[in-house]
């Protein structure tokens, strides 16, 4: 029963993250929302695999846990490169 409740909560959280990704306001809010969405997907897949009673889906959750943050690193590097290319921009 609690497992079902967890799945429902995860779906609600995903909905909120999607809402935030749609309204912004700035680009980084959307990145944050996508990142939140990623970790929630890990949990959702793990929870669903238990709900189905077939825990071999855990490999998928493990993949997410390993490579989810690559896209955030990509965002960081690309904002930096853009700043290097435009010397008028502020650097921290």
């Amino acid at each position: 029963m609690t497992l079902q409740l967890t799945v429902i909560t995860l779906l609600v959280v995903m909905l909120i993250a999607l809402w935030r990704a749609c309204i912004g306001p700035n680009v980084f809010d959307r990145v944050l929302a996508a990142n939140l969405f990623g970790t929630k997907t890990v949990l959702l897949i793990a929870a669903i695999s238990y709900l189905h009673g077939s825990p071999d889906f855990l490999d998928i959750a493990l993949v997410y846990a390993l490579i989810n943050y690559i896209s955030v690193v990509g965002v960081l590097r690309i904002t930096e490169l853009r700043n290097e290319h435009a010397p008028g921009d502020r650097r921290g």
């Binding site: 990145v31 997907t41 998928i60």
Partner: peptide, 30 residues
């Protein structure tokens, strides 16, 4: 704004993966 579209695309991918898991298509989800 293209960065926003990219983030939404990645969310779309994550959602499809969850959907594939529920449909029992584990390899596709992977």
């Amino acid at each position: 704004g293209l960065l926003a579209s990219i983030m939404l695309t990645s969310i779309y991918g994550l959602l499809s993966a969850s959907f594939f898991v529920i449909m029992d298509a584990v390899d596709v989800a992977f």
